[in-house]
Design a protein around this nucleic acid. Structure first.
Length: 580
DNA sequence: AACAAGATGAGTGTATAA
DNA sequence: TTATACACTCATCTTGTT
C-alpha cells in the first residue's frame, strides 16, 4: 500500500501502457504472419487494427477482409462487418467456439502471478450458520418454487416453524395474503414495505412491452440488412425489462441451448443503460445469450440497474438470507424520525462512485429554515426533493440531509461491515470501490443455483474482482471456495479481498493476478490442469465508458477502459474451449 | 504527493400529450 | 405516430488543503 504505483493506479492505470504492450511480444510475430500472407495491408496503423480485432477473437482472414471492405479509418464499420460475418455463418455456435487467436501462445512476458500455494489450512469454523438455516432454506426454496412470494414464505416458516408441513405453510400464506388484500382495501398506506414502487410501474411497463417492443426492434436492427428472422429478434435486446416480474423477484424464462449450458459457467455483468448497441455487441460475443436485466431495488433499498449475461440455470434460485430491508427507512432506522411526509421516497437511487458536496446539504438546510413553516411550500419541496434524489441524500436531523457513509454503502450492497475500511484505504477510494462493486444479494440470487451442484465447492476464475463481490456472494451462499484466481488491477482492492479471505478463514487457495491482459493461454491451461477445471468464470468489466455518469469519456464499448470486455470474452472463450 | 471537496452535462429511456 | 418534457446515471477533472 506504500508502493508508489498505488497512487497513479487510482486513476485506473490498467491501460497506462501503450498498445504495443497490451498484446505483448507475440504481436510482432503475428504482424509478420499477416504480411507474409500476401495482404496489401502493411501500414503500422493497419497492423494495430488487425491485432485489435484478432484480439477480439476474429480470424486474421476475416479481419483483413473487413478492413479492405471498410477502409482502415472506420473501426466501427469494421466491427459491424465482422459481426455481420459472424452472424451469417450457418451454425451460430460454430463461430462462438472457434479458436479466438493464438497471439498469446508464444508469450513469455514475465507476469506477476503469485503461484505459491497460499494454503490457509485452518479450522472448520466457516459457514456454520449453514446448518442452522439449511432446513429453512430448503423449505423456502420449495415454497418459492411453488410460486409463493418469498417474503410471505419466510414469514410463514417463521410462524409455523421450519419443520411444518408444506400444506400448512401454504395455507398460512394464503390466509395472510387474503388478510393483506383486505387490509389494503380498507386503508391506503403510502409507505407500505416494498410494494409501491414495484407495482406502480408494472402495468405501464407491461403495456410498453406488449405495445412497443416491435417498433424498438426495428429501430435497433436498422443498420443490418432487412432480414428479420427469429434469430435477429432473439438477439435484439430491449434495454428495459426491469419490472416484468410477477412476484417479488423476476421469474426468468430463458432457454439456454444445450451447447451453451454449463459447466463451465460464466457470468458477466455491466450497467444496463449503456450507449445504444453496446449490449447487442456484448451479447453477440457472449454466444448470443440475452442479457438478464435486473434492478437491485428488488434485493436492497437502493436502485442498481444492471445487465447480466450468463449460462447458469434459472430454475430453483433462492435469495440470500437474511433478506435485506427494501426501504431506506428500514435500512437506515436512524433516519426514520427525520423523514418528512412530503418526501415520499422509500428507496434510494443508484450508489455511485462519488458523493454529493456539502454545499448542497447546506443549501437545503438554509432553504428549509427560511420558509420556517412545518411543511414548506410546494416549490421548495420540489427543489429540495430533486437535489435529494440527485445526490442520494437522507434525513439525519430537522431540516438536515446528509450523504451516505461508506459503511452504509457496504450494508446496502451486501458487503460485511467495514469490509473496505482500514488497511490504508482512503475514504474517496472506498466510495469508488463500492460504487463499482456488485450488489451481493442480487448476484448471489443468480449464483444460488450452484449450491446443490457443487456441494464440495467451486473453482472460480474471477476477473475484474474489485473488492470481491462475487467471492462474498458465493461464501454467503455457503458455497465453498476451493481455488480462486482473482484478477484485479487496483492494489487497494486486492488488499481488501485478501484481508477478507484471511479473516473468513477460507480453506481454499487464493491466487492473485494483477492484470487480466497478462493472463495467457498458458496460464489458463495451467490452472485448468491444476484444479481440474474452472466451474465458474465471473466478472463485470469496466463501465467507465458506458456509464451515464461519465461526462467526459462516454465512448462506448471501444472506450479505453470498457474495451477490456474483450479480455473477458477472450478468457471465457478459452476456458469454454478447453473444458468442452 | 495524497487526499478531499466541489463543479462539470449528455445520452438514454419513459411518460404524456398532441 | 410523433413531439416534448422529464428523470436518472458502477464518472472525471480541477482546485485547495494537509
Amino acid at each position: 500500500m506504500h508502493s508508489q504505483g498505488s497512487s497513479s493506479r487510482n486513476q485506473y492505470d490498467w491501460d497506462s501502457d501503450d498498445e504495443l504492450e497490451v498484446f505483448g511480444m507475440p504481436q510482432e510475430s503475428n504482424v509478420h504472419g499477416v504480411e507474409e500472407s500476401g495482404s496489401t495491408c502493411s501500414s503500422a496503423k493497419n497492423s494495430k487494427l488487425i491485432h485489435h480485432f484478432v484480439g477480439m477473437g476474429f480470424s486474421v482472414e476475416e479481419v483483413i477482409k473487413a478492413i479492405e471492405e471498410d477502409g482502415e479509418d472506420n473501426e466501427e464499420n469494421i466491427l459491424e462487418t465482422l459481426l455481420t460475418l459472424a452472424a451469417t455463418i450457418d451454425d451460430p455456435m460454430r463461430e462462438a467456439f472457434t479458436e479466438p487467436c493464438d497471439f498469446a501462445k508464444k508469450s513469455v512476458t514475465t507476469i506477476d502471478i503469485s503461484d505459491d500455494d497460499d494454503d490457509y489450512g485452518i479450522t472448520d469454523s466457516e459457514i456454520e450458520e449453514d446448518a442452522f438455516t439449511s432446513e429453512k432454506d430448503e423449505t423456502l426454496s420449495i415454497l418459492v418454487n411453488m410460486g409463493y412470494p418469498f417474503k410471505e414464505a419466510l414469514i410463514a416458516i417463521d410462524k409455523c416453524g421450519p419443520g411444518a408441513d408444506l400444506s400448512d405453510l401454504a395455507d398460512f400464506i394464503c390466509a395472510a395474503q387474503l388478510e393483506k388484500e383486505i387490509e389494503s382495501h380498507l386503508q391506503d398506506r403510502p409507505n407500505r414495505i416494498h410494494d409501491t414502487s414495484l407495482h406502480v410501474h408494472k402495468r405501464s411497463r407491461d403495456h410498453y412491452y406488449n405495445g412497443k417492443k416491435k417498433s424498438r426492434m426495428c429501430r435497433t436492427s436498422q443498420k443490418k440488412p432487412l432480414e428479420i428472422d427469429m434469430e435477429e429478434i432473439e438477439l435484439s435486446i430491449p434495454t428495459n425489462g426491469f419490472s416484468i416480474a410477477k412476484g417479488l423477484y423476476p421469474r426468468v424464462v430463458r432457454k439456454i441451448p444445450d451447447k451453451l449450458a454449463g459447466p463451465p459457467y460464466f457470468y458477466y455483468e455491466n450497467v444496463a443503460i449503456a450507449p445504444v448497441g453496446v449490449w447487442n455487441k456484448i451479447s453477440n460475443f457472449l454466444y448470443g445469450i440475452q442479457p438478464e436485466f435486473v434492478d437491485s431495488k428488488l434485493f436492497c433499498a437502493s436502485t442498481r440497474k444492471r445487465g447480466y449475461i450468463h449460462n447458469l440455470p434459472t430454475e430453483n434460485r433462492f435469495p440470500l438470507l437474511p433478506i435485506q430491508p427494501l426501504t431506506v427507512q428500514e435500512a437506515l432506522p436512524n433516519t426514520r424520525q427525520w423523514w418528512p411526509k412530503w418526501d415520499r421516497r422509500t428507496q434510494l437511487n443508484c450508489l455511485l462512485t462519488s458523493i454529493g458536496a456539502a454545499t448542497v446539504t447546506e443549501k437545503i438546510r438554509r432553504d428549509l429554515e427560511e420558509c420556517g413553516a412545518e411543511t414548506p411550500p410546494p416549490n421548495v419541496q420540489d427543489t429540495v426533493l430533486k437535489l435529494c434524489k440527485k445526490w442520494n441524500l437522507v434525513w439525519v436531523g430537522k431540516n438536515k440531509v446528509a450523504t451516505l457513509e461508506p459503511d452504509e454503502y457496504e450494508m446496502l450492497l451486501g458487503f460485511p461491515k467495514d469490509h473496505t475500511r482500514g488497511g490504508g484505504i482512503s475514504r474517496t477510494d472506498r466510495y469508488k470501490a463500492l460504487g463499482n462493486a456488485f450488489q451481493v444479494d442480487t448476484v448471489a440470487y443468480h449464483l444460488s443455483v450452484l449450491k446443490d451442484q457443487y456441494p464440495n465447492g467451486v473453482n472460480v476464475l474471477s476477473l475484474f474482482s474489485g473488492i470481491g463481490g462475487a467471492e462474498i456472494a458465493l461464501h454467503r451462499l455457503g458455497i465453498k471456495l476451493k481455488n480462486v484466481v482473482s484478477a484485479e488491477i487496483s492494489e487497494v482492492n486486492r488488499n481488501i479481498l485478501r484481508c477478507w479471505w484471511e479473516q473468513t478463514e477460507q480453506r481454499g487457495n487464493l491466487f492473485e493476478v494483477e492484470d487480466v491482459q497478462r493472463v495467457t493461454s498458458e496460464h489458463i491451461s495451467h490452472w485448468i490442469n491444476r484444479f481440474g477445471g474452472f466451474d465458474l468464470v465471473i466478472g463485470g468489466s469496466p463501465c467507465n465508458n458506458l456509464s451515464g455518469s461519465n461526462r467526459v469519456s462516454r465512448d462506448g464499448l471501444e472506450g479505453e477502459h470498457s474495451s477490456l470486455f474483450y479480455e473477458y470474452y477472450r478468457i471465457v472463450n478459452e476456458v469454454m474451449q478447453a473444458q468442452r
